[in-house]
Design a protein around this nucleic acid. Structure first.
Lengths: 230, 230
DNA sequence: ACAAAAGTGTTAATCTTACACCCATGT
DNA sequence: ACATGGGTGTAAGATTAACACTTTTGT
């Protein structure tokens, strides 16, 4: 069974970061090559002896010098045969989150510029990257309500108000502070620390942290985490 | 930018069917070649000028002569580099449902045998197909609770008890008949017909049908369909 | 004393669960 | 008349939604 197939496999990563009440996405601009001066998602071709997940992580390091907190497969785009004008490409897209401490990108390389963009102010994107991004955003929004991935966008210790704002911002809706706090605390996966944040105005606010171990234990017990509120 | 990449792209389909209170999966046994005498999922390599979705549909016709009611991407398996002993393969797996009228497969070709297996009595499977199947089963179970895909496993007109049994069987739990019926009917997407099923015992049972148009309308309005019950 | 954000409880409404009897048919 | 599966309602309990005042700090 020997046959020829001329399809290339690539990986792309949609990396979200959150800071100052804004959801950001990581984009790359190549200074040379086919994509010269176009903003695009982090990504590239998979090497013969490399797993898909390793390929994504490698591209994330090479193109942005970043390690992510959360990474999962999003979707494989292979139904647009002329997606890439050079040759047929099937791209496996990954969905990634980084916490806000990683929003400072390493100095740009000679070949590429990496930058965070607010999802409210996106530039034109290469290929079908805009639709990939939209899909990732949907995934983020829906996942936020049944898996505690919001914590992967925040620093290890955070204010309750930051968590609350994150939900408001990403889901684009108002939430009731009291009900939100009650719900989150009822799962028992968020713990008070004895430290305080350095908010400059108002009453000092306690820092909280996410207890991942406890969360994993609860998941094993089949408890389900769901956040729906008005 | 010219480079060599020696990775093949394949598609695989996990096709579920439901009949006689059993969930079945479609498997193929090749009579020749590398997979000789091993049961495997429907699948094969993608042609250069073929979309992924077309590739799956083609394989479904070629290997089992079947058209499915529901088809969506499941996951792309590309992290096991030695998955296929012949060469590096990345496989895009699809999740498919057929209704019970399609459980009769066309006569086997000379090259292949296609057969339905109860998921309770599976043979040994080729490659990593067992883990792919497990993933598909999880998808089916979780999807059943928030998307009305159960109807794609039933004939156009069905008894309420069939729908109920389908949920019991696939989710592997007991459900309360009264609460189930109330919940399903409350969405307004299942309608009574004026026909009756031909059940041989007991009181004659009405046939019902799924109103897909209404469902689509509700989805657009943002109503969410969720079935959780004790 | 006031501005700013943090922290906290109660009640009404809704949804979910648990549960058992009558109905229509074939034998 | 009985066996079989179809069809239905209600009440208790749990969850969610709506809503506003007090606390702690800096200025």
């Amino acid at each position: 069974m020997d046959f020829q197939q001329n399809i290339k496999i690539a990986v792309d990563a949609i990396v979200f970061g959150y800071a100052d009440n804004r959801l950001n996405v990581l984009l790359i601009k190549q200074k040379f090559g086919t994509l010269k001066n176009q903003w695009a998602l982090v990504g590239g071709f998979v090497k013969d002896n490399e797993t898909l997940i390793n390929a994504v992580n490698r591209e994330l390091v090479e193109e942005a010098g970043i390690k992510v907190n959360f990474l999962e497969q999003l979707y494989t785009f292979g139904d647009d045969i002329e997606r890439d004008p050079r040759f047929r490409v099937v791209s496996v897209a990954y969905f990634a989150l980084v916490n806000s401490s990683k929003l400072n990108l390493k100095a740009d390389s000679d070949a590429e510029e990496a930058k965070w963009f607010s999802i409210k102010e996106l530039p034109m994107l290469a290929f079908d990257h805009e639709s990939i991004l939209k899909m990732a955003l949907n995934r983020l929004q829906s996942k936020l309500t049944y898996q505690p991935i919001g914590f992967d966008l925040l620093p290890k210790e955070f204010l309750f108000s930051e968590l609350e704002n994150l939900y408001c911002t990403i889901l684009e809706k108002e939430i009731d502070r009291r009900n939100f706090r009650k719900k989150i605390l009822s799962f028992g996966i968020v713990e008070e620390t004895d430290k305080y944040g350095n908010n400059i105005k108002g009453r000092p606010a306690k820092l909280y942290k996410f207890n991942k171990l406890k969360y994993n234990k609860l998941i094993k017990e089949g408890i389900l985490f769901e956040i729906n509120f008005a």
